[in-house]
């Protein structure tokens, strides 16, 4: 099981979402994708997309205005 960190700090919507979608395609089953974001609308649309796809998702607030969206590629 791999952990891949995707740095999307300073990127505005919809760049973090598209980057996360592209990156997840490259990952193997069971891998974790950690998307680092500081744009609050990405905190809404990245988890929304991943949950709709059926992946396990967790959002962690790491600092003021900084989040990590952790997506587990379950399928």
């Amino acid at each position: 099981m791999n952990e891949v960190v995707l740095d999307c700090m300073g990127e505005a919507c919809p760049v973090p979402l598209i980057k996360a979608q592209n990156k997840l395609k490259e990952l193997a089953l069971g891998d974790l994708l950690i998307v680092q974001i500081d744009h609050s609308c990405a905190m809404k649309n990245v988890p929304e997309w991943a949950r709709k796809e059926g992946y396990n998702v967790e959002v962690e607030e790491v600092d003021d205005g900084e989040w990590e969206v952790i997506i587990e590629k379950t399928k």
Partner: peptide, 14 residues
């Protein structure tokens, strides 16, 4: 709103 949610951050230009 950002201050009350304690989400204020000056973002870097990438």
């Amino acid at each position: 709103a950002t201050l009350l949610a304690s989400q204020f951050k000056i973002k870097k230009i990438k």
